[in-house]
Design a binder for these strands. Structure first.
Length: 114
DNA sequence: GGTTTGACCATAA
DNA sequence: CTTATGGCCAAAC
């Protein structure tokens, strides 16, 4: 098979599928950070790719809203809508936000056990 | 197969 | 508290 599709496939992407697998492991009521997910994947420096993978995500089975940045805040770059929706999902799971819109990572952060 | 990008992170001011 | 800059590495162009 010489020519392969340019469009993203449902299986065998390589990196982003691993991201989805880890994010699915985050239980309800807990959150995780891009850096943590990247660390579980084996490289703590690929945090940017975690976000990039979630950006291309359109699978509802992946709780992408449970992933936030290392500062306990929702990162967004132009897509304000996504950030608002994300916050609503987190609040719906019982996660509290500080007045500044910051989540207490020390309390809600999930520990991956592998 | 090189260049740009990106839902980040750490550090500095 | 905020803003700016560099680095990091896989995916997209």
């Amino acid at each position: 098979m010489s020519s392969q599709s340019q469009e993203p496939r449902v299986v065998s992407p390589g990196f982003n599928t691993r991201v989805y697998a880890v994010v699915r492991r985050i239980p309800p009521g807990c959150v995780s950070t891009y850096g943590d997910v990247a660390t579980v994947l084996g490289s703590p420096r690929v945090a940017r790719h975690v976000g990039f993978a979630l950006a291309a995500l359109r699978d509802d089975t992946v709780p992408w809203h449970r992933v936030i940045n290392g500062r306990g805040r929702i990162s967004f770059k132009g897509d304000t809508v996504r950030a608002i929706v994300q916050r609503q999902h987190l609040e719906a799971e019982g996660i509290e936000f500080s007045p500044a819109g910051v989540i207490v990572l020390a309390r809600y952060r999930y520990r991956f056990d592998d």
